[in-house]
Simulated assay, not measured.
Amino acid sequence: MPSTEASTDTGTGPGSPTRGAAGDTLDPRPSDERVALLGEGDPTAVTPPSDDAPTGDLLDAPADWGPVATAAGVFQLVPVRMERDLALVSEWMNDPAVAAFWHLPGPDTVTEAHLRPQLDGDGRTVPFLGALDGAPMSYWELYRADLDSLARHYPARPHDTGIHLLLGGAAHRGRGVGTILLRAVADLVLDHRPRCARVVAEPDLRNTPSVSAFLGAGFRFAAEIDLPDKRAALMVRDRALRDLL
């Protein structure tokens, strides 16, 4: 699973290698066409999912959660569309700061092989672009941690929801944006998934900016866990402690 702030990769989804969580690397400004597709000029516009963007019933349809106001701007999770977003996500994955934790550098086919099982899957893991004020600037995966291989490595509870994240542009890194967005997305999960008592993540212990971002976003450090490709920090945001951390 990936990590968060320095390269902000907090991610490892079902069937994918374990990674880190929250990074910035490339120019965050999208093309005019991409801005139009993501609704810039109307940050509250929700992009409808395409045929290859599952609504994710196992995750209570995060594609329908809509935009949220944050200290960094209006943020929205937009379902990944392969034909529209592959080149951009692949570009981010080839940034050295991201590749160090996500381990997905290479041609577009490498990223496609990572995205396709999620887009064609049963909805237990769903990929998104994170749009800030209409501009795509991050990549996210929401997943059912209790149904994931991660559940073999910690005492999972029903409906535990995991987060993987990378910040796609260096302009957003090192400024606390990862922390702000992690809190916002965790709040979205807790607001829209009433059966979920915990949001979890497993950034690489070496990715100290990612771990710090999670701590700043109200997560607590629960344990060190050995995953197939890293030693990770198990980070947990509890619904019961939501207003205290």
Rank of each mutant, 00 (worst) to 15 (best):
M1D: 06
T4C: 09
E5W: 10
D9H: 15
T10K: 13
R19C: 08
A22F: 02
G23D: 10
T25W: 13
T25K: 11
E33H: 14
G41P: 03
G41Y: 04
T44M: 09
P48N: 06
S50F: 10
S50C: 12
T55D: 13
L59E: 05
D64P: 08
D64V: 07
P67D: 12
A69M: 11
A69L: 12
A69P: 09
G73W: 01
F75C: 10
V78L: 08
P79H: 02
P79D: 02
R81V: 09
L86T: 06
M93S: 13
D95I: 00
P96H: 10
A97N: 14
A100P: 05
F101R: 11
H103K: 14
G106N: 15
P107G: 11
D108F: 06
T111H: 01
T111F: 00
P117C: 02
Q118L: 14
L119P: 07
L119I: 07
D120V: 08
D122Y: 05
D122S: 10
R124V: 04
T125G: 11
P127L: 14
A131R: 14
L132S: 04
D133F: 00
G134C: 07
P136A: 12
L147M: 14
D148I: 03
D148F: 08
A151V: 01
R152T: 08
H153W: 07
H153T: 02
Y154R: 08
P155A: 06
R157Q: 12
I163P: 05
H164L: 09
L166D: 09
G169I: 03
H172R: 05
H172L: 08
G174R: 08
R175A: 05
T179A: 07
L181F: 01
R183E: 07
D191G: 02
P194M: 04
R195M: 03
C196R: 12
V200N: 03
R206Q: 07
N207K: 05
S212R: 15
G216Y: 00
G216H: 00
F219P: 00
I225D: 06
D229K: 15
K230V: 04
A232V: 06
A232C: 10
A233E: 06
L234C: 03
M235G: 03
R237Y: 01
R239G: 00
A240Q: 14
L241R: 15
